[in-house]
Simulated assay, not measured.
Amino acid sequence: MCASYGLDPRFSDQQLIEEADDLLLEGIRAWARRNADETLRPTGRNLRNLNPIVLPGETAPTLELGWWGYLIDGRPSRFPSINTRSERLQERPGGLRGRAIVPATRWFEMQKPAGVWHEFGLAGSLFGMAAVTQRGRTEDGSWFTCYSIVMQPAPERLAGIHDRSPVLIPPAFAADWLAGAATSDLMTEALLASSDATGGVVATAMPSAP
């Protein structure tokens, strides 16, 4: 499970999406500066943080602030919804109807039973995590795009720390992920595209919880 991640504004200049407008990256960086590099956590009744996500637009991908986790009947869902298994989406591709890319520079997991937290990342580079989305409404009638980060089995070299890892979307596959047809083949292709990026992930033990 990915229950927290980070977005450092000092990320290296690189594409998150091929042929994306430079304003998209600047929007992500500006949000990260305002957020003061705080750890990003699921949105809830008391923690009303909204996090940047990239959504398909009419002519180009767009940046929006999304609600991490699903809203059901005006309230945060009672079932776990901050993550979705890639296997489930292959079996039930209807869950792929809404999709996003979540920009990040690292994510955090606890190694059990040792209880040691680890930071995972790509040496300070910006990367995109696959997410599925749906619209949700709060009790006061406000509507948000809610997102759930897609998780896959961790590669063998990382599985000793945590058994799951986010599906990373490389720039060359970003347009396909955002705008491709919602089929099980799309999820399979995303996993294949993710394999190279995941191969570069570095895990570092942390002295304390994020």
Rank of each mutant, 00 (worst) to 15 (best):
G121M: 05
W67V: 02
T145W: 01
P52M: 06
A203L: 03
D22N: 14
L23Q: 07
Y147L: 15
A181F: 08
N49L: 14
P76D: 05
R88F: 05
V167Y: 00
C146K: 03
L63C: 11
A209F: 08
T62I: 15
G69P: 03
V54L: 13
A114Y: 06
P171Y: 05
F11Y: 11
M110K: 11
W143V: 12
I149H: 04
V167F: 00
I169M: 02
A203R: 04
F79C: 12
G57E: 10
P113E: 03
L168T: 02
M1Y: 11
I53Q: 00
D22M: 11
G69S: 09
I82M: 10
Q134G: 07
R157W: 02
W107G: 05
S77V: 07
T183L: 11
A193Q: 03
P113F: 08
R164I: 06
A30H: 11
R10T: 13
D8P: 05
L65Q: 07
L65I: 00
N49M: 15
G66T: 02
G74P: 03
A114L: 13
L178G: 04
T204F: 07
D22A: 15
F108L: 02
N35S: 11
G124W: 01
L89N: 05
I72E: 14
M206S: 11
L192F: 09
E156S: 12
P113S: 09
P56N: 06
L168Q: 00
G141F: 00
L178S: 01
W177G: 00
N83Q: 05
A3E: 11
S81D: 06
I149S: 01
T105S: 06
M1L: 08
R106M: 14
A20D: 15
S86Y: 03
R34A: 09
V54G: 04
P61N: 01
G66N: 05
P210T: 00
S125T: 09
T84A: 15
A104W: 08
L126M: 10
D73K: 15
N46A: 11
S77G: 09
S148E: 01
T183M: 13
F127H: 12
L7A: 02
V116P: 09
M1N: 08
A36W: 01
G95Y: 06
A114H: 12
R45T: 14
R135K: 12
D196I: 13
D140M: 13
T204C: 14
R85I: 01
D8K: 14
S208F: 15
T59I: 10
R33K: 13
V132Y: 06
G6E: 10
T138R: 15
L158R: 06
L24T: 04
D37A: 14
M187A: 04
L65P: 00
E109Q: 14
M206N: 07
S195N: 09
K112A: 13
F173A: 13
V167Q: 00
W107L: 06
D21N: 13
T138A: 08
S184V: 08
E19F: 10
V54F: 02
D8M: 07
A36E: 15
R99E: 04
G199T: 02
T183H: 01
G98L: 02
L65G: 06
P52A: 03
R106H: 15
D163M: 03
P171W: 10
I53C: 08
C146S: 09
P103Q: 13
G74Y: 08
K112D: 12
R41W: 10
W31D: 10
E109I: 03
F79M: 14
L168V: 14
L23T: 01
S184Q: 12
A60C: 10
T105W: 06
I169D: 02
W117H: 03
G136E: 02
S125V: 00
